[in-house]
Structures are given as C-alpha cells and as structure tokens.
Design a binder for these strands. Sequence first.
DNA 1: TATGTTAGTGTGATAGTGCCACTATATTAG
DNA 2: CTAATATAGTGGCACTATCACACTAACATA
Lengths: 270, 270
Amino acid sequence: MTPRILLPEHLIRTSLIRGITVDTPMTNPVSEQAFLAQYNIHDFDVPLTTVDMAIFTLREKRLEVLLVKRAQHPAQGKWALPGGFIQLGQDHSLEDAAHRKLLEKTGVASPYLEQVMTVGNAKRDPRGWSVTVVYFALIASDSLRIQPDESSEQVAWVPVKEALENYGLAFDHQTLLATCHARLKSKVLYTALPVHLLPDAFTLTDLQQVFEILLDQPVEKKAFRRRILDAGILEETGGMRTGQSRPAKLYRVSDKQQAHCFPRNIEGPR
Amino acid sequence: MTPRILLPEHLIRTSLIRGITVDTPMTNPVSEQAFLAQYNIHDFDVPLTTVDMAIFTLREKRLEVLLVKRAQHPAQGKWALPGGFIQLGQDHSLEDAAHRKLLEKTGVASPYLEQVMTVGNAKRDPRGWSVTVVYFALIASDSLRIQPDESSEQVAWVPVKEALENYGLAFDHQTLLATCHARLKSKVLYTALPVHLLPDAFTLTDLQQVFEILLDQPVEKKAFRRRILDAGILEETGGMRTGQSRPAKLYRVSDKQQAHCFPRNIEGPR
DNA sequence: TATGTTAGTGTGATAGTGCCACTATATTAG
DNA sequence: CTAATATAGTGGCACTATCACACTAACATA
C-alpha cells in the first residue's frame, strides 16, 4: 500500500525556526527585522501549490470544458484541467495566476472567474503533499481563440459529460471538475451567471436557452423573462436581432461585476 | 515602497525541472518512476501555505470568534485568527490540518467545518509569497473547553463586531474574518446552519433566537417554525424543557452531515 | 384560582413563481 | 398583396412559501 515514491524520510524537516530560541513568547527579544532576515522558506516543508481551472464555454448548445493533454510526468499523456504552479516572481496573487493560465490557453483576458475550492492532501499527487486552488471560468465561445500553447500541449474542448465519464482525467481532476460543474449548476438556480457564457449582446431567448442547457430541463418563458428583467441586471442595447420571424430586442449586462442573487430558486416544472 | 524584507533575488529559483530534458513532450523517454525519483520539491519556489480558521460560537447572546495573540514574529503581539502551517508528516489533508488546529485550541473534535476561500499573494505576509486556506467552524459554547495552548499563546473569545473594528488583526486577518462572517450571515438566509451553534438538544425558540442574533433582526415565529419543521431536518428528542412557563419540545438535528437548502431566502420584516 | 410567561396554532395577506393562452411583428411562399 | 409560418413578447390566474398577527395551550407561582 505504498504505491508511489514519496519524499525520503530524511528530507522531512522540522517546522521549528532554525537558530531562533523562543524563551518567553511575548518578550521575544529578536526584532521583526532580524527575524525576517534570518527567515528562509526553504528551511521548511511546504506542500506543492498549484492553480487548476475548469474553463467552461458553450459550443453547439452543449457545455464544454477545456482539457489539456499532459506533456510531462506525472500523469504524462493523460487529459487534465489546465493549471500549474504559481510563478512567484510574476504572479502577484492567486487570481493573477489563474488569469495568466486562462490567457495562455484561451486568449481571453477578462472572463467570469470564481474560486471554487482548495484541495490539499498527501496522496493526490505522486510528487508529494500538494495543494491546488481550483477556479472555474465562464467565457463566450465567440471570444476565444485556441492557440497552440508554447509548451505545445494538446488542448481540446470536451463536453462536460464526456470529460467526466470517459476521459480518465489525471490526478483527482475528475472530482475537481465534478465539483466545479455542480457549483455552476447550483448557482444557475439563484443567479444570472449564465450571461457570462454569451457574447456581449444577446436576446432573452438566447439566455433562456443557456439556462435550459445548464439545468438540463425546460424553463418557462414568461416567468423567466419576468425574473431576469425585474432583477434589473440587463439593459437594452437599442439594437434588434432580425431573423426568419419577429425581431428580438438585444440586451447586455449592465454591470459585469455585480453578481445578482435572486431571493428564490428557479423552481422548474411542477 | 519596499517596506518588508523579502527573499533576496538570488534565492528565486527557476521552476524548470533540473536534469531532465523534455524534447518532444509525448515521447518523453523518462519513466514516471525515474521522474519521481529525481523530483525534489525543494528545487522549486513554492509559497508558504497555511490554514487559518474563524471559529465561531455563541456566548451570552452574541456571536464570538476565537482569537490568538501571536507569540512569535511576524506580527508578534498582534491578535490573529488561529492557524498555522500544515504538518506534512501528520496531516493527511487540509481538513485534517483544520481539525487539528480546532482541537488544539478548543478541544472540540467534530464541529461544523466549511472551507470559505483561499487567499494567496506576495504581500500578505512579510516572509514572502503566502497562501492561506481559510475555514470557518461553528461550535456550541457548551461543548468547548478553552485550554491554555502548549505554545502558551494567549487565546480569547471576542465578539465578532469588536474583532473586526477594534482589534487591528495581524496580516489580512480582518479581511478574512469579515469574509467568513459574511459567508455565515448569507448562509443563514437559506440554510439551517445555526443549528451547529446550539447544543445537541434545543427548542425551536432557542434556534429562532440564534437566527435573530446572526441576522441582527427579528424573525417571525410562525413562519420560522413552519420553515424549519417542514424541511424535515429536525427530530423530536422526546424530552421537554421546563421553565417558568409552558414546557417546550426539544429537538435534535436528524442528520448532521445533511446541509439543507431552502428554496427561498428568509425575507425578514417587510 | 388568578395571573404571568412562554409554547405553539389558525388564518388571511403578500410576492415571486409556474402555467398557458393570447397578441405582435417579422420573413417567406403563393 | 395575402396567407402561412415562426418566433417575440404579454395578460392574467393559480400556486406556494413566506409574512403578519391574533389567538389558544400549558405550565409555574402567588
């Protein structure tokens, strides 16, 4: 039952601070400056820390997620959520790291981005104790341009159902993806999150269809329109979309930062 | 504008894997075993990783949070949320680490524990790039026994309002606490979370009072009772609480793991 | 037995939703 | 030009969980 090579015992160092004696805590005579000068993070055992993302988009009336085929060990050749280490010199924050990953993979600069959870334990990565901070992003498929990564990894949009069922994702990424998907679906019940899967201008029918795809069940037209319009989160662009029939008003999100929460869940058919 | 001593430039190492050449990704000839044998986490720059907790309880009809006076640098002498490094050899997972912290500080073994968020950036800790995974816990005040920590830190229960306003918490802990508090308050609108702040057996009036404290506004009795009872998350213990007046039925939570979500928010007075 | 106090209920109003038939306005076929 | 088709958008009632508040119930104590 020790399937993986972990860090050898002798590499597990203590977490006590080397060279500093703490006699009576509150009268520690060492100044903070002196303390920090002596402090070296490499004296400690720290977990691996990564950022992973579930990047969702809508293509051909299906919810799809971006997967990456791992070019390197571990889990070489397996599909995985895009992600990787934080670049301490470059990323100012976790969100920075997530934005960077997203830009690298999709060319999208300002998506909807939400932190979902952080998973950390000794077993999830064969390299040792590892922590991953997981985000999900929503982007409009019209805004993305897949570009062959400089690391020339294989990248693909995969329907979420398939990714969960048939892709044998690396590490615990199936669980991570399932959690992201569950979070997305649950938020559809009481927010207007799906607007972020649409282009800047869209019709109410477009939006309703997105809800129906995400909820995987029909949504009643009138109730839906009332709910969305009364919330005051959209504004008319002034334009109309013409087609084979009566033209439809185009809307845009009035404040992309604002995340409206409805006081009730969508109930669905009774 | 460089107020703190950070890691000297020469300590910032590259994130490339030493001694392994990746020529064509998918035909990497090194086996996973060989890869892992060569892998040493100390070759990389990794952030500091900690777990911090907002441990809430109810004392004298106020919501209070556990604070710890820091015995060591950095931020020595300041009040902070309890937390600390993950013990890689001991904690199997982040939740383990959180449970350990909680047990150390309060003696409570099985509280309600929820991950709130993870904050990571280069500035929040003077020791360098750091990540903290933040949890909140709810415990019943009757179940806790504060024990002087072995590190003999000063520990105190502080009303949340005071902690946020007058305590000048260490690092970014004021923000962390504020976010935990906001999360708790928002979940009170659509869950029965406050049951975890009560002892095993309680009356509906007890529970209503907790809601009123957390929401900071009155709650209508009949509507509240129907809401809670119809949800089917409580069961009668069979016992009654007697007092100066009509005895009240005692209830317990029927399934502590189950987190019921109501289809509507508590609306409060109109 | 009366009174105070808290537990618990009966019942109508309110508001956001579901439901469904209806009208409105465009394109396209004849 | 007219009718058919198709989708956009509305009117209006039903439903349900809530709010509101007055009421009854049960116990302790004087």
